[in-house]
Design a binder for these strands. Sequence first.
DNA 1: GTAATGCGTGCATATGTGTGCACATATACG
DNA 2: CGTATATGTGCACACATATGCACGCATTAC
Lengths: 128, 128
Amino acid sequence: MRNDNIPVDPARLAIAQDVKAVLDTDFFTALCEPVRVEIIRRLITVGASDVKTIAQGMVQDRSVISRHLAMLERAGITASRKSGRRVEYDLNGPDIVAKVTDILAVIEPMARLCMPYAAQKSHNEGAA
Amino acid sequence: MRNDNIPVDPARLAIAQDVKAVLDTDFFTALCEPVRVEIIRRLITVGASDVKTIAQGMVQDRSVISRHLAMLERAGITASRKSGRRVEYDLNGPDIVAKVTDILAVIEPMARLCMPYAAQKSHNEGAA
DNA sequence: GTAATGCGTGCATATGTGTGCACATATACG
DNA sequence: CGTATATGTGCACACATATGCACGCATTAC
């Protein structure tokens, strides 16, 4: 067996850990379902709504929409509030923006190291 | 049957369409798999590598890693270059940053409209 | 009070997806 | 030339997930 103890760049190691930490699997899982994206679109269009209203005109059963909304809430994408026998759901805009902002902040330094098959910018370049 | 022709806010409608358009299902699908995230972490740590190197130390079979890399490339997350009998994969940092930047630009106006159960900032507030 | 409405959940099922093995192809090595 | 290595793919299989239905619970309407 080979002893490939290649010394890893500490900077790369740190960024790699940051990226892995910020890549919330639940968040992306919630967004990779077309039906859930459609629910998001409707919530933006009409604002906060109850389950029945959101499910109006969609082919899936109301119970399916209810489950999707619960999953979106667990992922921090929606928030809910009970109002009588109805439950109003709405997008959690600030939290979504915060999440994406965090991701962007972490992947920007990564991008400086990962420019495939092109000259990577050195620390004193880019002042074009 | 009720005739619920509720006039939708044109601004909301436009933002909703923008959000739905920018939410690339393939992109999120690629990122919601723990094994693919681990591959990303390794690529950041050691830089561009071939399939065999990436698969070293991972429990999944090399063919599985190959498939994940192909999927990541279709999603624009990695890029590949043939080098002899090997195929080097590397993260496509700039494209990833561009994608996330686009998403952030679209969801920021959405967030101003979707602040659940809190007073939404009007256009002349926020100058605190 | 009873009936009706809205919501979430257990259950069964169809579809999607990750995984490993075997094999074919392409390239390097001798 | 033949052999070894690296990669991708067809196939079968295990597991996850989305879906619809029926039901129970909570709340409103009557």
